[in-house]
Design a protein around this nucleic acid. Structure first.
Lengths: 141, 141
DNA sequence: ATAAACCCCGTACCATACTACGGAGTCAAG
DNA sequence: CTTGACTCCGTAGTATGGTACGGGGTTTAT
C-alpha cells in the first residue's frame, strides 16, 4: 500500500493542495496518517475519492450531500435498513436528475433539428419544450 | 396576456422577490415593462423561466450556463450553424451528466442489493462501483 | 550543507448566488 | 384619507466552496 504526500494526491486527482486540506477539515476525507514530522500520508485510494467529489459537484450535489453519499456503507454494527433507506432516497434523487436532464436533452435536440428546417424560432424554445416545476429545494430547506 | 407584479411571480415560481431582481440584474430575465410609477410588470411566462432556472441549478449548471441555455434560439438574423453548434455542445454536456448519474445510480442500486445479502461491506462501495475521472472542469479552469 | 522544493498551520480573501435592510414612494381597503 | 401591504432602489451581509498568503519547519538533490 503506497503512501502519498498531499502534493502527490493533489496533482494525481486534479485538485489543489488547499482544496485537499479544505475537504479534510470539512470531513469529506478522513484524517490521514502523519509522518513523525507531521506530513500527511495519504492512501492512494483517496485519489478516487477526490475525483468522485469533483464529478458529484458537477452533477449539482453539495459537499454535504457528497459526504452522505460517500458514507453510505454497510458497517458491521449498522442497521441494514437504515443504509438501505438512505441509499434509496439517493437513488430517487439521482433518478429525478436523470429525468430532468433527459427532458433538457430532448429539448436541445429538437432545437438543433428545427434550426435547419425553418428560420424564425420561438422566443425560447427550451422553455417551450421543458415545462414543469422544480421538485427538490435543498439549500436552505 | 396577464401582467403580474414581482411579488406575484415570486410566489408562483417559488423564489424570493430579491432573487427575481437579482436575476434581472444578472441578465437571466429580460427587463420587464414598468407602470408609470415604476412597478415591474411581468409576463406570466416568466414563471416557467424562473422554474427552469431552479431546476437547472439543481443539475449543476451555473447561472452563466443557464443564461446560455435560455438564450439558445433561432433568431431571424442569427447564423443557424452557430446556434446549432452551441446546442450540440450543450447536448454533449447533458449527456455526460446523464452517464455519470446512471453510473452513480447503478452503484447505489448495487449497494442496496448487497446490503441485505451479506453483512460487512467495503470501506466505500460507491467508490468501488464508480471509478473514473471527472471530464469537464468549468468553474475557473 | 545549502538551496530548491515541499509541507505545516492559521487566517484572510475571493466568486457565486443569493438574502436582508432601510428609507421612500404607491396602491387597495376600510 | 389613513393604514398596511406592496414596491422601488442601492448597498451590505451571508453561505458555500474554495484559493492565497505568510512565516515557519522538512526533505532532497547537488
Amino acid at each position: 500500500m503506497k503512501l502519498l504526500t498531499i502534493g502527490q494526491i493533489a496533482i494525481r486527482s486534479g485538485v489543489g493542495i488547499e482544496t485537499v486540506r479544505f475537504y479534510e477539515r470539512e470531513g469529506l476525507l478522513a484524517k490521514p496518517e502523519r509522518t513523525q514530522s507531521g506530513y500527511r500520508q495519504f492512501d492512494e485510494e483517496v485519489i478516487s475519492r477526490l475525483m468522485f467529489i469533483q464529478r458529484a459537484k458537477e452533477l449539482g450535489f453539495t459537499l454535504n450531500e457528497i459526504k452522505e453519499l460517500l458514507s453510505l456503507r454497510i458497517e458491521p454494527g449498522t442497521c441494514c435498513k437504515n443504509v438501505r433507506a438512505k441509499a434509496e432516497s439517493k437513488i430517487a434523487a439521482v433518478e429525478g436528475k436523470i429525468r430532468m436532464l433527459q427532458r433538457m436533452k430532448k429539448a436541445l435536440v429538437r432545437l438543433t433539428q428545427e434550426c435547419c428546417e425553418k428560420g424564425g424560432g420561438s422566443e425560447c424554445p427550451i422553455l417551450d419544450a421543458l415545462d414543469g416545476r422544480p421538485r427538490t429545494s435543498r439549500r436552505r430547506g
